[in-house]
Design a binder for these strands. Structure first.
Lengths: 127, 127
DNA sequence: TTTATAATTAGAATAATTCTAAAAAGGAAG
DNA sequence: CTTCCTTTTTAGAATTATTCTAATTATAAA
């Protein structure tokens, strides 16, 4: 079956959310709608959805793998609070291929910065 | 103590290796020289070295965190065999800052491609 | 319906990492 | 060189993340 009930719900959760969700977060969300679901089902479906190319897996050091929308975009990661947000920078594919001299499949760009919230907190601080 | 015996050895292992080593790999390497060391020591020291800014942590989805040299470089990841290698592409810092309109701390670029070995294997294959 | 296949479950198993408390090491001060 | 204090290391339990296994349930096809 290409799209089972849970696969469909998980895909929707990912696409309707801000993305970057861990399996655990997805499990908790999914349980609200389907209280009987178990973690293994979530992991199974996430793996299948990845293989089918309907979602993508990503990871940030020190935290479990996350699952994200497939549409190409880059990530901003706050070095203070760890929050992740989407931001699409100019496409690098051809520049990278030119430099490498080979075809590339894709690339993954994470930009480390201080998010607006944390920046705000810093203002007026002693340090 | 800024540089304890194990911290020093771990730092050397990382800097003298090709990088991208997992805590487990480092533990096994370190045991060759210091058979009595335990995993917790490796994790402790890795965390300390990261905080001190002497090494950096990185991660590839689906595998444990890895530890790498601090010198700025990008990564090539083979989508077939998962091998990781270093490759420095043109620096993106100012281009990214210009687009974002904010200072950035750093960025992390992973390029997904087919490594030479895997490419070789593919030649002559039926598919 | 039977039957075959695939999805889901429960729970054990495995990995990755952190935590806790005790033991060992290092260094500073007397 | 001892005593004392601090930091590092150890052992092992605890936690978290993920996969695996086998039984059960659902789905769809014949």
């Amino acid at each position: 079956m290409l799209m089972t009930q849970y696969a469909k719900m998980i895909l929707e959760l990912i696409n309707q959310s801000g993305g970057h969700l861990t399996a655990e977060q997805l499990f908790l969300e999914l349980k609200k709608k389907a209280p009987k679901v178990v973690q293994a089902t979530v992991y199974n479906n996430l793996n299948t959805l990845c293989q089918e190319g309907l979602i993508r897996k990503m990871s940030i050091e020190g935290s479990p793998d996350r699952y994200d929308k497939i549409q190409k975009h880059d990530h901003l990661v706050c070095y203070r609070c760890g929050s992740i947000s989407d931001r699409t920078f100019d496409d690098l594919t051809s520049a990278l291929e030119k430099q490498l001299g080979k075809k590339i499949i894709s690339y993954d760009l994470k930009v480390c910065y201080l998010c607006p919230k944390c920046r705000e907190k810093d203002k007026g601080g002693i340090i």
